[in-house]
Write a protein that binds this DNA or RNA. Structure first.
Lengths: 255, 255
DNA sequence: TATTTTTGTTTCAATATTTGAACCGTCAGT
DNA sequence: ACTGACGGTTCAAATATTGAAACAAAAATA
């Protein structure tokens, strides 16, 4: 692993930990030496990706992330297109609905609307969704090329719960079932007590770029709910893909 | 300069260039070798900070920036607090109004509302504002400690226009004038034809964290406008600081 | 206040990573 | 088929990174 990845890993750690964090804590979490960690943090800070509180000496995420994030959003506003759909689906189901975008071998949660019910699925912002262990991942794989699927199933497939699918064979089965019904189903594959249905989102070129999913506490899941919510996500996924192909992505620029 | 900074510089280049960019173009813009540039881009891509289009092989900003940007915004929502003020000031003046946040030796433009007039100041998203060559910078310095001012004036002070202040002495004068009147004035110090008035924004601890500014085409600038707009930014800066000290920044964390 | 502990910062020789010139393959245009 | 432009690859040389240890400063504790 290169130095750059290590440094970016520190940002991940800061993002995951709520609130600021001291040097030692970050070093331990990252598994690096204090000296190494500090040098990286300083370099990140020099670029605005991290800020150090002058008093407490704690580190936090920096404004550069916001700035670049906004620029990216401006150019490729998947989020803006998706958000109303996610919200609509939440209102319709009153379950936690979330959309994700594919990036670097996994799905990044980019938009979440939480259920209002007392028992609900809670999703951290920016949560990483492994392809093999989530309904979203299976839905995404089902829309991918055999080459891509093969490459992904060659990687390690860590087990998160007792029902995580960890064999390529079982995942291929789940994929073909997904192709049959038009949406994927997960049964506590990433987190105990959480079931989901998910569907793929495609871009103008019909390539899969992300997913939309409904995450339901297992206790409220049953075949009727699965089929009802499943058909809802499928339709919503299609609608989003439709809208993405209809509207051009913003390319033009002002002087 | 360390490897990390070099890699982050590539993100800067992608952000500044509108739309995707090829390997060679990026390498030239960055001044690195192709091999180096590519290795960095791959590493950035592996972390989601950059994506490579499978067909065109061009590189673009990645979703990780959006994800982390949103997390930061959630924790430290200077932007959300400021935006209504910026918009209000734009409506009042119909000139371009922008707010900035201090980071790593300069001010990052984080929120802009453009004038609707045919001749107006245009500001790129995420524009970097040097402290010595902008009204925002002078306003920020005027609110800073002597130690900080001294450190900043020791750095190189590049000349951008014929009227850029490049001597520590002239900048110190501008600072003391700013302290006297409560807002700073720039006269085409960064870009020809642009004058600005600016005022500082402080956090709960009364420390300067950013600025708010009105940028006016030079042809519409005159003493009357300066004093009118100047007093407006000053008041708005104070209002924002007031609101920031009223509301606590989110510090608590869940389990 | 004195003492201990924790946390942040610096140093430097050993080490692993980065670097870039040269090279290869591919595609588009002629 | 030739040419030029571009993306991607290789590998020895150059350089940046690493981390143990020492140091400093600040908190916590006695």
């Amino acid at each position: 692993m290169g130095t750059v990845s290590k440094a970016l890993g520190l940002i991940d750690i800061l993002a995951r930990s709520q609130g600021p964090k001291g040097l030692t804590g970050i070093a331990i979490a990252a598994g690096f030496d204090k000296a190494t960690t500090r040098r990286m943090l300083l370099e990140l800070a020099a670029n605005g990706y991290v800020v150090q509180n002058a008093d407490s000496r704690d580190y936090e995420l920096g404004p550069a992330l916001q700035v670049f994030g906004k620029i990216r959003e401006d150019r490729f506003s998947l989020y803006k297109t998706i958000q109303p759909f996610v919200r609509g689906l939440r209102e319709l189901t009153d379950e936690t609905v979330h959309a994700s975008e594919y990036s670097a071998g996994l799905l990044l949660s980019i938009c979440t609307e939480h259920s209002t019910q007392p028992i609900r699925v809670n999703l951290e912002e920016g949560q990483k969704l492994p392809l093999h262990a989530t309904a979203s991942g299976i839905a995404f794989l089902a829309a991918s090329t055999p080459i891509f699927i093969d490459a992904m199933l060659r990687k390690p497939l860590p087990q998160f719960t007792s029902t995580t699918l960890t064999s390529p064979k079982s995942i291929l089965t789940a994929i073909s079932e997904t192709l049959g019904r038009g949406y994927s189903i997960s049964n506590q594959t990433l987190q105990e007590g959480v079931s989901s249905v998910a569907s793929v989102i495609r871009n103008q070129s019909n390539k899969p770029i992300g997913t939309i999913a409904i995450a339901v506490p297992y206790l409220r899941m049953n075949p009727k709910v699965i089929s009802e919510f499943g058909n809802l996500v499928r339709k919503t996924g299609d609608d989003i893909s439709q809208q993405l192909s209809g509207r051009r992505i913003k390319l033009s620029q002002a002087s």
